[in-house]
Simulated scan of single mutants.
Amino acid sequence: MSSKEVLLKHQQHLQRQRDVVAGRMKKLAAKQAEMTKKINAVKERIGKKYEDMKRVLDEDLKITLTQLDTEYEATEKLVEDRIEECYHLTQELDRELSDISARAKTQEFKIQNADIEKRVSETLKLSDPNRIQMDEFKNEQLLSLTINLLLFIRSQVPVTKKLFQSYAADVILDADTAHPKLIISPKGDSATYTDTWQDVPETLSRFDTTLNVVSRQGFTEGRQYWEVDVSGKTYWELGLTYPSIPRKGREEDSWLGRGEESWCVEYFNGDYTAWHGGVQRELPLLAGKRFARIGVYCSFPGGLVCFMGADTATPLHCFCTGAFTDALLQAVCPGHDNEGTNWKSLRVCDASRSAPVL
């Protein structure tokens, strides 16, 4: 086979490969369009359901206010009638007062005066403001029912949180990876900082320059959700990492989020920061907010890592990674003592159950 034939054959082979890749690009573009269509359809349907709920509440509000207005109008009409009766009686009394000097018959004056006194007494009795009452009991009942409805709605777990709870993971911290200044509970569900360097075996997997500990098991598929109790803490970091995160050497290399192999949210003295690849993303809208629990959701097939204030399902930050290249481990850092304000443990919670509403 001549060199030209070899080149031609190679050229044809490359062309076929190019056509295959180009075809894949078209399929991916079609998939993207399909996903966009589907997500927009789901968003539209969910939006309509929320609109329906709003219409139901608006209609209930309209009925309730109409009932209150109807009773008020009836009571207002009664008050106006009593005012009119009093007005007419005062007019009559004014006429009587002006005619007193013109009356000559004392007996007739006394009879008329007695009649007026009777009418005044009856009018004052009927127009006594204390006798004109709205149905305060019913009004209080309506208010109480409204408050109960609000409390019921607030007590419901947000739909997104309910979804995350269905992906609750059983996370056990690996004491063999914990920095020697961390105490890991026997169940592996909490990490506590101590000033004392613990007498623990030296292992290749143990962090020795930063206060990290990772989970015993990782995951390579599906969706995972876990929560950590951070109440009473002034400094913490938590997130996800590949097993390849540095455990030794320079301290900064081992910090969560400082390399390409980990993702985290950090809390320090009231400020939240998201980290990945050494890039710092400040979250100023969350400044000053406190949460009892932080939730971490990961979709392995979706390449998604989301952090949320689990108490109220408040979004903190989401990383869209595109694709994960290795197994993922849960990771926590309870932080140093922070001038005596940060001794409390970080505790892994049962993510299938809701945190208490603050």
Rank of each mutant, 00 (worst) to 15 (best):
173 L>S: 02
290 R>L: 08
136 E>G: 05
293 R>G: 04
297 Y>C: 02
172 I>E: 11
130 N>G: 07
318 C>V: 07
291 F>Y: 07
159 V>T: 06
119 R>M: 10
18 R>P: 01
169 A>D: 09
87 Y>P: 05
191 A>M: 04
56 V>M: 13
350 D>T: 05
287 A>G: 02
77 K>L: 14
230 V>G: 01
280 Q>I: 08
228 V>S: 00
26 K>W: 06
329 L>D: 00
110 K>Q: 15
208 D>C: 00
334 P>M: 02
180 P>R: 11
237 E>F: 00
92 E>D: 12
165 Q>Y: 00
132 I>M: 02
81 D>S: 07
118 K>F: 02
346 L>F: 05
165 Q>K: 01
58 D>V: 10
259 G>W: 04
44 E>Y: 14
242 Y>C: 01
90 T>M: 15
34 E>L: 12
340 G>H: 01
193 Y>D: 01
302 G>H: 04
228 V>T: 05
44 E>K: 15
96 E>N: 10
270 G>W: 02
343 W>P: 06
154 R>Q: 14
28 L>Y: 14
299 S>K: 05
353 R>N: 09
355 A>W: 00
317 H>D: 04
204 L>E: 14
278 G>F: 03
166 S>C: 09
230 V>S: 02
53 M>R: 08
343 W>K: 12
117 E>P: 02
146 T>W: 10
220 T>L: 04
327 A>K: 08
8 L>I: 13
333 C>H: 10
276 H>Y: 03
31 K>S: 07
331 A>W: 03
144 S>Y: 12
314 T>G: 08
55 R>Y: 04
302 G>D: 09
104 A>Q: 12
110 K>T: 15
52 D>A: 05
16 R>H: 06
106 T>E: 14
235 Y>H: 14
265 V>L: 06
108 E>R: 13
307 F>P: 11
112 Q>I: 06
218 G>V: 03
98 S>G: 11
308 M>G: 06
74 A>R: 11
15 Q>T: 14
204 L>T: 11
199 D>T: 13
41 A>E: 15
179 H>K: 07
18 R>T: 09
171 V>I: 15
85 E>H: 06
186 P>Q: 07
196 T>S: 15
272 Y>P: 04
29 A>Y: 13
98 S>W: 13
329 L>T: 03
308 M>V: 10
261 E>N: 10
135 D>C: 00
213 V>Q: 03
17 Q>W: 02
197 W>D: 09
206 R>C: 01
339 E>H: 13
299 S>R: 05
50 Y>E: 08
261 E>A: 12
103 R>S: 06
265 V>F: 05
345 S>P: 15
136 E>V: 10
153 I>H: 09
54 K>R: 12
38 K>H: 12
2 S>R: 08
113 N>D: 11
290 R>N: 05
176 D>P: 03
7 L>V: 15
135 D>S: 03
333 C>Y: 04
254 S>K: 02
238 L>D: 04
15 Q>Y: 13
225 Y>A: 01
239 G>C: 11
234 T>D: 10
123 T>R: 08
345 S>F: 05
154 R>M: 13
338 N>F: 06
232 G>M: 07
91 Q>V: 14
351 A>H: 01
11 Q>N: 14
78 L>S: 07
165 Q>S: 00
161 K>R: 07
217 Q>Y: 04
2 S>V: 09
179 H>V: 03
13 H>K: 10
16 R>G: 03
311 D>N: 04
121 S>P: 00
7 L>H: 14
339 E>T: 07
264 C>A: 15
171 V>T: 05
15 Q>V: 13
70 T>G: 03
223 R>F: 09
282 E>T: 09
